[in-house]
Write a protein that binds this DNA or RNA. Sequence first.
DNA 1: GTACGGAAGATTGTCAACAATCCGGTCATT
DNA 2: AATGACCGGATTGTTGACAATCTTCCGTAC
Lengths: 245, 245
Amino acid sequence: MARRARPHGEQGGELESLVARVKHLIIFGRLKPRERLIEDELCLQFQAPRHLVRAAFVKLEHLGLVTRRPNKGAIVRDFSVEEVEEIYEMRAMLQAEAVSRMALPLPDEIMQQLAAIHAAYGEAIARQDLGLVCTLNNDFHRTIFAACGNRYLAKLIEALWTESLAVRCYAIGDPVLLARAQRDHARMLAALRKCDRKALVREAVEHIWPALHAYKRAHGGWDEPIAAAPAPERLRPARRSTRRG
Amino acid sequence: MARRARPHGEQGGELESLVARVKHLIIFGRLKPRERLIEDELCLQFQAPRHLVRAAFVKLEHLGLVTRRPNKGAIVRDFSVEEVEEIYEMRAMLQAEAVSRMALPLPDEIMQQLAAIHAAYGEAIARQDLGLVCTLNNDFHRTIFAACGNRYLAKLIEALWTESLAVRCYAIGDPVLLARAQRDHARMLAALRKCDRKALVREAVEHIWPALHAYKRAHGGWDEPIAAAPAPERLRPARRSTRRG
DNA sequence: GTACGGAAGATTGTCAACAATCCGGTCATT
DNA sequence: AATGACCGGATTGTTGACAATCTTCCGTAC
């Protein structure tokens, strides 16, 4: 057997780690929207062979975090405000659906996991460990929505979550928003414990908006009717609330 | 400039075409679930370089049609009945949502597109042109749900549609189901014309079940509590007919 | 007769050099 | 001076060979 360090395979792990590191660069604003991702540069920076870097680009593109154009390389994806709004509409809808069809009460094991994550989350916020905050936030959401009983619903929610990572980076550093997120999580836990589905749905939906607002604010307050509305989108009605809500 | 035939680039187009061809092989049952996809074989069959075939595998995996395992290659994905049911649950939910928030009436242009697709669809069925039937069915659904006003909702619906392609292959050859699909499409069009949202939602949701039932029936009626599930080729080495005779 | 171990073949993963392409600046021409 | 061709550097896409891994088959021991 000889047990060589990491002989050849393990490419899955390496790739994942590479993807995660580039993702962090994007989330924490180290790489900004429309900034180019140059293969050789990342090869050097991460000591990774080029084909791995390229595979990572493919994966990141499919995650919705980068855009690749033929013969022009990869750039950090930038979202239009409309796109971001649509993503958040979907997140609201899917998360509401997930908690609506969730079997309550949740198994003890899940509840304990959530409590543990939430406790660690509070600590991480207190210590300003943003990396950990992000990871635990991730874990909290994935754990909650994985319990919805439909793995595809969970998958879709997670996909949109990931896609909106680059948006939420505007909220990640804001202490006020962090405190609010922590409070929301606590409320969700309470609602889960009380099997109060109505409160659960409300929290699951309302919890997502602050990050969106932070994003729009960071983009110059385009969400407010600024003087000249150029009205470029006459082909997109259908965005008011046809929903029950 | 000399205008060489297809000098170097165009890799996007080539890849897409490759993906489409393998997809067809899967949809039409030419490649069956758990059957291996061998790189060299497909290189030969499609006269494509290996890295393209591999890229196609990556894309197909992300479309949900094949599964890749490290050092073991790609196989046609097989779904458990539970997975299929969950996919269909999601499709029902998302399609209902889409037509619920669709702005009615639809623009004339879209309505005309739909009518044209529907007419061609009927013809294709009459001529038993299954490839065309499949394409047009695709077009019909994509066109309808793209009109929902939220491109992410449309994208999610299309993703699940693609993922369930391998499931619907059981229904593709059945004349009864084809006729029923055609009728359902006609009803959807009528509901769209009349701006009858209730009927539209009903049709959009009910339309998806027959294919699911056909799938379950083809799987030996596992939806019914059969005594001895024969579990035919659970471990199937999947290596016999990797080649076409 | 069955089970374990190892070799050979088949298949996938990795790499580095090469070809094609794009981008920016420079120079000649009008 | 403005415009257009063109050339060089930077970057990405492609290829084929090689290394690692898995699978199968066969021989041997019990």
